[in-house]
């Protein structure tokens, strides 16, 4: 906000003589702010206010139904020192992020490259591969996952062919989280589509030139496709990481909102939701939310720093 409030203080000397500082600022920056106008209205009108209120609430004991009372940093202190569920949900969430994001991205990229060619039935394949993502919040997913990963589910019937007696994957605290990772990978549709759009934007003449030089498909992928795709890879990585940190629905659906068995699928936001709406501790939940925001922001900032070394923009 300081940018808006103090225009033209630093570079005032370089601007033409007659115009005032405000005019100068507008001439140099006006177009950018005009294009951002809808976003600014939305941000200041709809987003920033509620976010700041939630920040305020994180310092209160707000219970949804009575007036919030200021309790200082007590929520944060409790989270840091006396909350076993916070620690458990952190472990679950980090495991989920670290496993599901790379796997999902790799899978999505693989399928996108496989589908990025002229062939019969392509739209149908793309649509079918997107289908699992469409079913994201349906009860059917919960039933399906039970049928796949319960003790007498399809996975164990398959393993039985090899003499393996598998556990009830979905309801065993040692394995239940991995069934959610598989769910995340299975719902790879969105990054796949974005990869596809990215692949489509790579100019054809570059491949044609490479082909003439005798470069193999494999080499073309590493020398042309991947470098030119890095902005999209970067986007998918950042967005999927943010999404995975905030993941709520998969655990809510599969564990019936419990995060069980034994907190093994207690995603961070599921815990937050339980605190807010199950146990009437919206103040505490707000503190949890802001801690999550800081963690995600750190991760994202790190991604942007690293991007300088591996993301290639045309500009």
């Amino acid at each position: 906000m300081s940018t808006l409030a103090s225009p033209g203080t630093a570079k005032a000397t370089t601007a033409p003589k007659s115009a005032g500082p405000l005019k100068r600022f507008w001439r140099n920056n006006g177009a950018g702010y005009m294009f951002l106008l809808p976003w600014f209205i939305g941000f200041f009108g709809l987003t920033a206010g509620p976010a700041l209120v939630s920040l305020y609430l994180s310092f209160t004991n707000f219970d949804l139904l009575t007036d919030p009372r200021w309790i200082g940093a007590a929520n944060y202190v409790r989270i840091a020192t006396a909350d076993a569920k916070f620690a458990a949900s952190m472990r679950v969430t980090f495991t989920y992020v670290l496993l599901s994001v790379p796997l999902k991205l790799a899978f999505a990229l693989l399928v996108a490259v496989a589908l990025n060619r002229g062939m019969r039935g392509l739209p149908w394949y793309r649509a079918i591969f997107y289908l699992p993502s469409l079913l994201g919040t349906s009860v059917a997913i919960a039933v399906l996952w039970r049928q796949l990963f319960a003790s007498n589910g399809l996975v164990n019937s398959f393993l039985a062919n090899f003499g393996i007696d598998g556990p009830s994957w979905i309801s065993n605290p040692g394995t239940s989280l991995y069934t959610l990772v598989i769910l995340a990978v299975w719902q790879f549709g969105s990054p796949m589509i974005i990869f596809l759009a990215g692949l489509r934007q790579i100019p054809q003449d570059m491949y044609e030139a490479a082909s003439l030089d005798g470069a193999s498909k494999w080499r073309q992928f590493w020398k042309i496709t991947l470098p030119l795709l890095t902005p999209v890879v970067f986007f998918n990585a950042v967005v999927q990481t943010i999404d995975a940190f905030k993941a709520f629905t998969p655990a809510f659906i599969i564990s019936g909102g419990t995060g069980g068995p034994i907190n093994s699928t207690l995603f961070y936001t599921l815990y937050l939701y339980q605190e807010a709406f199950g146990f009437f501790r919206m103040g505490y939940a707000s503190a949890l939310a802001w801690i999550l925001l800081v963690i995600i922001a750190l991760f994202t900032a790190f991604s942007f720093l690293s991007a300088r070394y591996w993301v290639h923009y045309d500009d």
Partner: peptide, 21 residues
């Protein structure tokens, strides 16, 4: 320290204060 605020005023007021009004 206790600092009580009418919840409705708080929520409505500060949420709207930033321009929605």
């Amino acid at each position: 320290m206790t600092f009580r605020l009418n919840r409705r005023k708080l929520l409505a007021g500060s949420a709207a204060a930033l321009g929605a009004s």
